[in-house]
């Protein structure tokens, strides 16, 4: 490229010679770039926008949605109370389910054939029973076992209570959800654990780190990277899955909504109330998941990507800087008090 200069390259068409001018033979950097036109893509985009606009218009104008009823109920005491019950069920089943699931995962990975078979059988059974069937079973536990007690296996019982008094409806629901969740959680945790590179365990063993500490400090934090995306799915699924405990007449969100529309017949707006709450709660969980995942990604990337919040702040800062630059000569420093 020794012959090219900063001015028009030799042999290049001089500006204004018209479209018939032969293609420039010189430095391509001096030529105008014409981006590809995606006509089909634009048409498809426009069609989708029209469809969405129609739907939103319908939401706003179709009287069947009854937005007034929605407004009346969405923050009503009954509904807020019901949301609280839904949250409690989700929280208990998540925490207990994943605790039990983690234990089951390590039992399945255990070298003892008895323990690993027991864990496998548990997972097999509880994944086989539909949650709703299992819940009704627990609801009817007292028909199966009238009393629960402690004693010598197959021997005398020292202490016992009536099953119904110790396990209320809510207890039965939590147990049902937990046992169901644990089966899935076990497989998720096991997947995370076997995804941890074998060398990590070897290094921990070679350093003489105690076994439980190896699991808690070396294996699980790394397994979390693989566990969290699926676990997020599970917890969100569980949040919505709590709606099936309506069969046990527990006052969670979906049950209360049904009770209300059973009374007043406003089915659509009340289903909207439930929908809105489920969407809000799921969104909050998704945000939480993002930050938890980020925490466990420490050390995984050389430079962690900025959070949306950091990105927004950075964007505002650039805007401000740009604005300041544009306004610099115009804004002289005003002495304080001048503005009055």
């Amino acid at each position: 490229m020794a012959s090219t200069t900063d001015t028009a390259p030799p042999g290049a068409a001089t500006p204004g010679t018209g479209p018939e001018a032969p293609p420039a033979a010189g430095d391509p950097a001096s030529l105008k770039v014409v981006p590809t036109r995606h006509y089909a893509r634009w048409a498809a985009g426009a069609a989708v926008v029209v469809l969405i606009a129609q739907f939103v218009h319908g939401l706003a104008t179709n009287p069947v949605w009854e937005w007034q009823v929605f407004r009346d109920y969405v923050f009503s005491e009954t509904i807020v109370q019901a949301v609280w019950v839904t949250l409690q069920l989700t929280a208990y089943a998540t925490v207990l389910g994943f605790l039990l699931g983690t234990v089951l995962a390590f039992l399945r990975l255990s070298r003892s054939p008895v323990l690993s078979t027991v864990a496998w059988t548990y997972i097999w059974i509880f994944r086989s029973i539909p949650m709703i069937v299992q819940l009704v079973f627990w609801f009817n536990l007292s028909a199966l076992y009238k009393e629960l007690g402690f004693g010598i296996p197959f021997g005398p019982v020292f202490w016992s209570v009536d099953s119904n008094s110790i396990i209320g409806t809510m207890g039965a629901a939590v147990i049902g959800l937990t046992l169901h969740q644990a089966a899935y959680a076990a497989e998720i945790v096991r997947g995370g654990v076997i995804a941890v590179e074998h060398g990590q365990l070897e290094a921990a063993a070679a350093l003489g780190i105690p076994r439980l500490r190896q699991i808690r400090r070396i294996v699980l934090p790394q397994a979390m990277r693989a566990i969290l995306p699926t676990a997020g799915n599970e917890i969100i699924g569980l949040l919505k899955g709590t709606s099936v405990v309506y069969v046990m007449s527990i006052g969670e969100l979906f049950y209360q909504v049904q009770v209300i529309y059973g009374r007043n017949g406003r089915v659509i707006p009340l289903l909207l109330v439930a929908t809105a709450w489920y969407v809000v709660l799921t969104s909050l969980l998704s945000v939480a998941q993002y930050y938890v995942e980020r925490r466990y990604a420490r050390g995984a990337d050389r430079t962690p990507p900025p959070t949306p919040l950091q990105r927004a702040r950075r964007f505002i800062r650039t805007l401000r800087a740009a604005a300041a630059q544009r306004n610099q000569p115009v804004i002289p420093l005003k002495p304080l008090g001048d503005s009055r």
């Binding site: 990590q200 070679a206 995984a300």
Partner: peptide
């Protein structure tokens, strides 16, 4: 007994 591995095996999250 100190052991140094071919692939280092440092704990990446620490």
């Amino acid at each position: 007994i100190g052991f140094v591995f071919q692939n280092f095996n440092l704990f990446p999250h620490l």
